[in-house]
Write a protein that binds this DNA or RNA. Structure first.
Lengths: 199, 199, 199, 199
DNA sequence: AAGTAATCGAGACGGTACGTCCGGTCTTCCT
DNA sequence: AGGAAGACCGGACGTACCGTCTCGATTACTT
């Protein structure tokens, strides 16, 4: 009867345990780092978190969901994007950041998540929505502004351009045919901006 | 020790059954196509091939090995590479071929193989040696000749260039954020050759 | 706070919901009949009765308690016992009544209750107190009067005699080695009264 | 080609491990005695026997099957039946033997098996076939010979008579309303032979 | 022709993890 | 103070594959 201006829905029943949620994410993140995705079984996460399996299944549909939440919980990387006007520098800086991230444990885990996503559509979608799309959106905005400034030809296929800048990182991460060295970022940027034809 | 004049090693004992080898590859390929990598269980392959599990373990170290052999057994793609002198056309043709291959069932299976390789080092190595490296070697040769002809700047990082041409295909295949459409090949080639800066 | 002029013991708080009690018993009885004791899970009863599990645990200690209460709620059999003086007829009538009861759905449920009682001491005690003892007391009274009347030898072990009259019903019910046919009652009575030796 | 007069079927594949079979039975029997039927979970038996769950499920359909096999493996009671011609003595001896068996741990386990059989038809059937029927057959033979000797009236219902002799033991065992004391056997026998009517 | 040796099929086995069910306990809000 | 809702831990369930292990049968080469 009385107006409830509070935003809380005030549902009946025992509320979800924040303690359990955090314990799961911490345990999963630990296991991911220690033994990779293979070690982050539901069973192991439950045991380590001191949480029952059912509780995990209640809130996460698949193993991949837990893993990706744990990944974001632990490696909350920022997508800060300087837009100084110096296009080459801005792009290089951003790509170099990702190279740096992929060179550590986080890179291995990301590779395994991508691997699992090949047989887990839910994980694939989550990975796109929570990881890929925000980064692509930020980079795309920079590129679009570059078009407006006349730094890039207006008929450029932005999506393809993004792929040519970022795909090599994921490619090397997942295939391992070449190391992810720090010199890569400027090379990639220079090629797409200048082309490789002699002038 | 003793001279073995025979060309064949002529080992004693029952020779390996070619029948069993083929049955395994056919069964695995069928399962790969029908239900993806997840369906190509050692157990399932053995049952379908009418072969005992031990026989499979005897000749293939891991599930991935069987799968990749079955993949090559079924999809024996050629790496023909025209070197007409028209660099843009040659590259585009080759990339377009891979795009075409990845648009079908083989693409899905390849994505799953890459996925499994993230947790199976043996498979990862096999994938690099039998799939990736031959293709990269062929393309690298073309690019090196282009350098010699003066079509490409001599200080170009060939490895990075290859990645910028091919990685987008694998990236779209595994992440699914953009479709693998046929217009992609010329776009990729044009960008790396010309750059995106206005002239 | 406010005076409670009601005559009730006037305990504080909300009184026990008769609605809930009945809903539980009805739901449990329905489940017992439909799927046997195995179906009468606390969980299932709560769901069907629209009652919370805690409410059930609050008023009944174990699953068996709920079941047996539901049993009595549904099958409220009378222990009417004619004492006409014709001992054989009186005993036969009473035993026949129980045979009849055990031949239906109630028999199956009773068997399952006895079954559960083997691993649930509370249920076992309840079963004895609310089911067995009243019946035994009634029959024992008849037998004791028969002793007084000189129809039965005074040194007779009444407890053992009761067992020889009634145990066969439970035995056949639980073991199922012989059917519970209607001819059983007079046979049992005749044997214990006359013996099987030829005269 | 050669005649194989041996009785061994010589089936292909690894033969069943007798070691595993015995380990399961011993472990189950131990658990039955220590903690009753409730303790003899498949999981616990497997762990204690050092045997995998699958192996148990392969050879025994239900928990009850394992338990009853373990019961017979441990308490291999003989159904020796003296037929001396003194009917009362023979029956009493046999019943007393069963009373004695039921007074120990074996009695509790048997009660629990009967309990479980109420919700496990396979177990119920096994119990009848491997426990009940052999004993009834032996006793029935004695009674039939007594009929032939004229010690029992020829119109006697043997099945009902067996129930009146043995059912009280199971009844007291499962209901617990009276103790299973040693004086029971002669009382039961005397009643059915002589009847309780005064002469 | 007999012996030797590697292979094959069948299938049993220990082990790990899966996803589900139910039992009891708890916490919160509503009446 | 009940009671409904529902989250939680724990334990067991039955199943799927894994990779290993016996078996008996088969098939070549060697003596």
């Amino acid at each position: 009867m009385s107006a409830t201006p509070t935003t809380t829905p005030a549902r009946a029943g025992r509320p979800r345990s924040e303690r359990a949620r955090l314990a799961v994410l911490e345990a999963a993140a630990d296991l991911l780092i220690e033994g990779g995705l293979a070690a982050a079984t539901i069973e192991a996460v439950a045991a380590r978190a001191g949480v029952s399996k059912v509780t995990i299944y209640k809130w996460w549909p698949t193993r991949g969901s837990v893993a990706i939440d744990a990944y974001f919980h632990r490696f909350k990387e920022t997508i800060e994007f300087a837009d100084s006007g110096d296009l080459a520098a801005d792009l290089t800086a951003q790509i170099a950041l990702l190279v740096e991230a992929f060179r550590g444990r986080a890179g291995v885990v990301m590779a395994e998540l991508i691997g699992l996503a090949q047989s887990d559509p839910v994980l694939a979608a989550t990975l796109r929505q929570r990881w890929l799309e925000p980064r692509r959106a930020a980079s795309a905005a920079v590129l679009r502004r570059a078009v407006e400034r006349g730094q890039i030809r207006p008929d450029t296929d932005i999506a393809a351009l993004l792929d040519q800048l970022y795909a090599p990182l994921y490619y090397r991460l997942t295939m391992g045919h070449e190391p992810l060295d720090r010199a890569l970022a400027p090379t990639l940027v220079r090629t797409v901006l200048e082309g490789v034809r002699p002038r």
